[in-house]
Design a protein around this nucleic acid. Structure first.
Length: 598
RNA sequence: GGGGGCGUAGCUCAAUUGGUUAGAGUGGCGGCCUGUCACGCCGGAGGUCGCGGGUUCGAGUCCCGUCCACCCCGCCA
């Protein structure tokens, strides 16, 4: 008997409808479930497009019925049969529920042992993360994960299409690059041909894409892998994918227009969502002042209110002596939420180090007559209380939550508190689903124990009007740098680059880099910039992160096919692993005894 | 580097104050069933309680160490 494989499949498992009634079909797929009722056997056949019910019976085809009795979950099979309408017996919960296929022929391509992950229980049962990673190919069979990867694929395709149509050239850059200390840790690749020397895996194509601009490829993009040897998180993997973009003769405005066109098209075609462009923009300083955060979630209010000036001469020394006194005013409809116990919990919340480590949380509940129920009402005095309430926009029933501390602590704590309240007060119910925001004008430098360091990278251009400040007060210089923020997540960032060598030299000077260091690290870039570099700038988006948000996934691991654990291991293949002595010898590599080993 | 924290049947979990033979659901196996759709019913099978050590008459449970999924801080220009 000829194999159904040769005959070929006529349909996928997600497309048959009532209008196909009577059609002869061949389906390939995996057994999702098998329900044996004796004289009737129901098999749900699954492929990446969907699930179709097949029915077997001795009266339909005795041989097929007998074979179907032996089918088990995850057998890979072919089924030939006739589509019949289920009429009144339709299953409204299935996309193909209007029909089923009468099974006339079954061919088992391969059997399956019982699977460690029950794929048919997708959505209902959560397998342990270790099991999922160990048997990743089975985890990836789950319909919910397949949906993620199908969407991710469309995202990449549509991005390519949109950028190509916009005149961007897709160009490749090396993964194996020169090692440069500083910034993210590099993965090192030993060189056999140059013993004792190493390549580094690229953290990003940053310098190469700037060189493309010097070459005259005035619009470039690449969907490319980046590698960083840093500790992992829920939303961070050691290798991840960037949509990397650079434009010559760019201004932030021109770049934003192109990127907004990309995002609106992707959201429209993949999610059916119409985004409003241009996206709002907010200087970094405003984001910090209003939200305490450089990637604010602007889907809800609870903005920070500044009362530093009001309380600077109050007799409450905690307030009077603090660098910043700011707070959140929670509207009256949430008054019932703030029991004494809850306020205590919020106090310890802001005291936790990861939430800023504030010294405390001052609170006040505004009573009907406008007076305060608060431990600090007395020391502040009624008049000051009224002024604070007015400044913070409070009404009877409002709850005020106030932190007094230095800039960093105050904003970190209130930002964390704001997000905590978002979740516990369910503030996103009815909120717009997607709020994009450009955060602009970041400080060019941050101070560290080693002096000034670039907050973005050393090729980021300062605002032209701030160039004189480079000498006087580097901390005040603002950068032509921008992040694209979506619902409180940074999904991309970039900048206009420096193309003037005098400005670049000045930046290196502020960063405390000697001529020799500059020469050693960036000689080729500076040399290139001697030959007519165009003004240019660009941006890079985290493709994985965008895919994660579009899918509604909670972890990057759900949009990366073969992810690593939080310790950077692949539980399926068992990497990283050791290497043969022979190969190590060829590379002239020995390693020190491991700590704890005898 | 630091903090939190999971680990018991193939899978997901339970097991009281340290006490008899470590249970349930699901899956798997055998049987029955002609309209199931998380099918149902009956039967029996299935365990290195992560690993190592200790306390105890007795440890899944307490103590010490260790490995480890996962989450967070630092880190990620």
């Amino acid at each position: 008997m000829p194999s159904l494989l040769d005959k070929g499949r006529t349909h996928d498992c997600g497309s048959l409808r009532a209008s196909d009634d009577g059609r002869d079909v061949v389906l390939f797929g995996w057994v999702h479930r098998q329900r044996d009722r004796g004289g009737r056997i129901f098999v749900l056949l699954r492929d990446r497009a969907g699930i179709t019910q097949v029915v077997f019976g001795p009266d339909i085809d005795a041989a097929a019925h007998e074979l179907a009795a032996g089918l088990r979950a995850e057998y890979c099979v072919a089924i030939a049969g006739k589509v019949i309408s289920r009429g009144d017996n339709a299953n409204p919960d299935m996309e193909t529920g209007a029909i089923e296929v009468e099974g006339h022929e079954v061919e088992i391509f391969s059997a399956s042992e019982p699977t460690p992950i029950n794929i048919a229980d997708d959505e209902r049962l959560d397998a342990l993360e270790t099991t999922r990673l160990r048997y990743r190919y089975l985890d990836l069979r789950r319909p919910s994960l397949q949906r993620n990867f199908i969407l991710r694929s469309k995202l990449a395709t549509l991005t390519r299409q949109t950028l190509a149509e916009g005149g961007f050239l897709e160009l490749e850059t090396p993964y194996m690059v020169k090692y440069t200390p500083g910034g993210a840790r590099n993965f090192l690749v030993p060189s056999r041909l140059s013993p004792g020397k190493f390549y580094a895996l690229a953290e990003s194509p940053q310098i190469f894409k700037q060189l493309f601009m010097v070459s005259g490829f005035d619009k470039y993009f690449q969907i490319t892998r980046c590698f960083r040897d840093e500790d992992l998180r829920n939303d961070r993997q050691p290798e991840f994918t960037q949509i990397d973009i650079e434009m010559s003769f760019a201004t932030p405005d021109r770049l934003f227009v192109e990127m907004e066109a990309l995002m609106t098209r992707v959201w429209r075609e993949l999610l059916g969502v119409e985004l409003e462009a241009p996206f709002p923009r907010m200087p970094w300083a405003e984001a910090m002042a209003r939200y305490g955060n450089d990637k604010p979630d602007v889907r809800f209010g609870l903005e920070l209110q500044d009362i530093t000036d009001l309380v600077s001469s109050s007799s409450f020394t905690v307030f009077a002596s603090a660098e910043y006194v700011k707070g959140i005013c929670v509207p009256p409809e949430h008054a019932a939420h703030f029991s004494r116990g809850r306020l205590d919990k919020l106090t310890s919340f802001v005291k936790q180090r990861e939430h800023g480590g504030a010294k405390g949380l001052a609170w006040a509940k505004i009573k009907e007559d406008g007076s305060w129920q608060s431990p600090i009402a007395k020391v502040l005095g009624a008049e000051l209380c009224d002024q604070i309430a007015a400044k913070m926009g409070a009404a009877p029933g409002s709850t005020l939550l106030i932190v007094a501390d230095d800039f960093h602590t105050t904003h970190t704590a209130l930002s964390a508190l704001r997000l905590e309240l978002r979740d516990s007060l369910d503030l996103l119910a009815g909120a717009p689903a997607w709020r994009f925001l450009w955060v602009t004008s970041f400080p060019l430098f941050e101070s560290s124990d080693r002096g000034w360091v670039s907050s973005h990278h050393p090729f980021t251009s300062p605002r032209v009007e701030d160039i004189p400040l480079l000498d006087e007060d580097p901390g005040k210089v603002l950068a032509q740098a921008y992040d694209l923020v979506l619902n409180g997540n940074e999904i991309g960032g970039g900048s206009i680059r420096i193309h003037r060598s005098d400005v670049q030299a000045k930046i290196f000077e502020v960063l405390g880099l000697s001529k020799e260091e500059v020469e050693q690290k960036f000689a080729f870039l500076l040399e290139a910039f001697r030959y007519g570099p165009p003004p240019h700038g660009g941006i890079a988006f985290g493709l994985d992160r965008i895919a994660m948000l579009m899918c509604g996934a909670e972890s990057l691991r759900d949009v990366i096919a073969f992810p690593k654990t939080s310790r950077g291991q692949d539980l399926m293949t068992g990497c990283p692993s050791g290497a043969d002595d022979e190969q190590l010898a060829e590379l002239f590599i020995t390693h020190r005894p491991l700590p704890g080993a005898d």
